[in-house]
């Protein structure tokens, strides 16, 4: 069974030979081939090379085009800080929609015409061409809250929920119109699954999530499904308060960050939801030992039961000891999934 077959099997409730393995790597992968992260995020050939070599070295079941959340905002004209060896970052002080009246004049762009979005689409195509027979191919888009924050500035967006709720609705609708185009381009380029990152959603309470975020996340997930893609939801931060909504989105798999209980997610999201995670990337993977990694994953596995995908709560940090990353792989390859009841 290869990695691609393994991930399809866990999602489709088929028999597995061992646990599927989907840890997120970005800076760690760039470092493995000696690339600067600025180059990784701007040149899909470097990203593809790093992803494929890292996935082969550690026997990961997938490769991903994820790099940073600023691609869409950059192509829309936002002011982005670029770094030599770090991810590009949004300049919040001069956010594209610091003046919110500009939203009315903003048009979703064609991903094939955008510089950084096109690079990701081409990256997906490269990954598909070079690794698509063995590895699952993951594209990436931002969720409504994350993209809204990237365009408006997160501090402003958080207050907009109360100050100007109609603007937030319009902003999120615009964001998802754009992300649906971006997802389609990546699926057409060969992505099997689209990762949806919506980190900023963890900052709002359940009432705001339900009213503003969930409806647009749902529209995005449903749209990707209609295009024939699968969805991996990844919300950094504390999300236990959103478990019910996250479970109702219908994503093929849901990632949980390290501070969120897997057992409660299983209870709330039900037995059919594949769950991925969620050892502490810093304390366990970067600062811990292989034994700590193994024990942490065993506890995640125990809490999750069936339909468990091995991963850390978030990105594997650069400078993580290689033996700790190997321990993640060894856990996945040495353990059988818990049988469905």
């Amino acid at each position: 069974m290869n990695g691609r077959e393994r991930i399809f099997a866990v999602i489709q409730n088929k028999e597995l030979d061992c646990l599927p393995l989907m840890p997120i790597t970005m800076m760690f992968a760039a470092d493995r081939i000696g690339a600067k992260y600025g180059d990784y995020a701007s040149d899909c050939r470097i990203l593809a090379e790093a992803q494929i070599r890292t996935a082969e070295e550690y026997d990961f079941d997938y490769v991903s085009a994820i790099s940073d959340p600023a691609r869409e905002a950059a192509d829309l004209g936002a002011n982005i800080h670029y770094f030599d060896d770090q991810p590009p970052a949004i300049n919040e002080a001069n956010a594209l929609l610091a003046d919110k009246t500009r939203l009315a004049g903003l048009k979703p762009i064609d991903p094939s015409q955008g510089r950084r979005m096109s690079d990701r689409v081409q990256g997906v195509a490269l990954l598909k061409e070079r690794a698509g027979s063995d590895k699952l191919i993951e594209g990436w888009v931002e969720g409504p809250c994350a993209q809204g924050a990237d365009l408006r500035g997160i501090n402003r967006l958080m207050m907009d929920f109360m100050d100007d709720p109609n603007f937030v609705r319009d902003l999120f609708a615009f964001a998802i119109d754009l992300e649906l185009k971006f997802a389609r381009a990546q699926i057409e380029a060969g992505a099997d699954l689209i990762g949806v990152g919506d980190a900023a959603a963890s900052l709002v309470g359940p009432a705001l999530y339900k009213e503003f975020v969930f409806p647009e996340e749902k529209r995005l997930v449903d749209g990707i499904h209609e295009m024939g893609g699968m969805v991996r939801l990844h919300i950094c931060g504390k999300t236990k308060k959103h478990y019910e909504g996250m479970g109702k989105l219908g994503c093929e798999t849901v990632d949980l960050d390290w501070m969120n209980p897997m057992d409660a997610a299983r209870e709330v999201m039900g037995p059919d939801q594949a769950l991925c995670g969620n050892i502490d990337p810093v304390e366990v993977v970067k600062n811990g030992t292989p034994e700590k990694v193994w024990n942490g994953l065993a506890e995640c596995h125990r809490q999750t039961g069936p339909k468990y995908i091995v991963g850390a709560g978030c990105e594997i940090p650069r400078e993580s000891p290689l033996e700790n990353v190997r321990a993640i792989t060894e856990y996945a390859r040495s353990n059988q999934p818990v049988a469905m009841p």
């Binding site: 501090n155 958080m158 207050m159 929920f161 109360m162 900052l203 709002v204 309470g205 705001l208 308060k241």
Partner: peptide, 13 residues
């Protein structure tokens, strides 16, 4: 967890 970031920012403002 009765307040979240939006509520805190509004109070801070």
């Amino acid at each position: 967890e009765e307040y979240f970031i939006p509520e805190m920012l509004l109070s801070a403002r």
